[in-house]
Design a protein around this nucleic acid. Structure first.
Length: 258
DNA sequence: AATAGGCCCAACCGCGACGGT
DNA sequence: AACCGTCGCGGTTGGGCCTAT
């Protein structure tokens, strides 16, 4: 219920956007924001429906969009996230900074799906559809000054302790000034120590298992999460995954260079 | 050079969720 | 509680471009 017609088709333009239309939309949103998409086109002087304007803005004109080819790492992350989240493109996009759900959806349908079927014709993890009786071990490294940022998440659903797990992660070694304990670490042990020193506190009652994932190239590599699945506990609530990857995404860009 | 088929991606469509009345 | 308006999402389409034949 409640669905309004997309637009009165009469008199409203459809199809590709012109430069002039883009400029009108950008200028209007820069000045006024977009509190009401439906009213926006009229106010901005556009002969488009609000839906079309929103799509154009969110998928193309937004200043915080990274355009261009996906990196192999991004592609790998999409594949892994898709294994966990399924076709929740917006959820996947939320975990890939500066990429839109439409873009991710497109690349999945045009490239990654085929890539997957070629690389593993029989193997379909189906983690998303059958989440019971598995556990993911992940080390989450808390970014510097992130306590405040994470407090909201922690207080909402979680309040747990994460235990340490021995690492087999590879490491990149370069030095940097950082508050995260030893900055001269060159071995995986030292790196693990740094990671361990920065583990997040999460819910004691809800989360009882070790969360572990390798960290490489200074970000939490979600693509490697799968390799660390251990089936010994049940996390069948979707919020678990949502929370986990929200955290991972937040941390991805924050890990100190070693 | 012509053309058929595949690829890519912006844009559209229809639905459900959600908040306000 | 029912209705209505708006928004966001996932699925799909259409057309331009590229490549192989």
């Amino acid at each position: 219920m409640g669905r309004s017609p997309c637009c009165e088709k009469l008199g409203l333009k459809r199809g590709p956007w012109s430069k002039e239309e883009d400029d009108l939309l950008i200028n209007y949103i820069k000045k006024n924001g977009h509190p009401n998409w439906r009213a926006l086109p009229k106010l901005a002087g556009l002969l488009r429906c609000g839906k079309s304007c929103r799509l154009r803005w969110t998928n193309y004109l937004r200043p915080d969009i990274k355009r261009g080819n996906f990196t192999p790492q991004e592609e790998d992350t999409i594949i892994k996230l898709h294994q966990v989240l399924g076709n929740s493109w917006s959820a996947i996009a939320a975990r890939l900074p500066k990429r839109t759900d439409n873009e991710i959806k497109n690349i999945w349908h045009t490239r990654l799906k085929k890539k997957m079927s070629k690389s593993q014709p029989q193997e379909t993890p189906e983690i998303h559809s059958e989440p019971e009786n598995f556990n993911v071990d992940i080390h989450l490294q808390e970014p510097e000054n992130s306590k405040d940022n994470n407090s909201e998440i922690s207080s909402s659903k979680t309040n747990t302790k994460i235990q340490q797990q021995p690492s087999s992660s590879s490491s990149t070694s370069s030095s940097s000034e950082d508050s995260c304990s030893n900055t001269t670490a060159t071995s995986s042990d030292s790196r693990d120590q740094i990671i361990w020193n920065n583990l997040l506190e999460v819910d004691d009652d809800m989360w009882s298992d070790v969360l572990w994932a390798p960290v490489d190239n200074n970000y939490l590599d979600l693509s490697l999460v799968e390799e660390n699945y251990q089936i010994n506990s049940s996390f069948n609530d979707s919020w678990f995954w949502d929370d986990l990857f929200t955290r991972s995404n937040e941390l991805m860009l924050e890990l100190p260079e070693l």
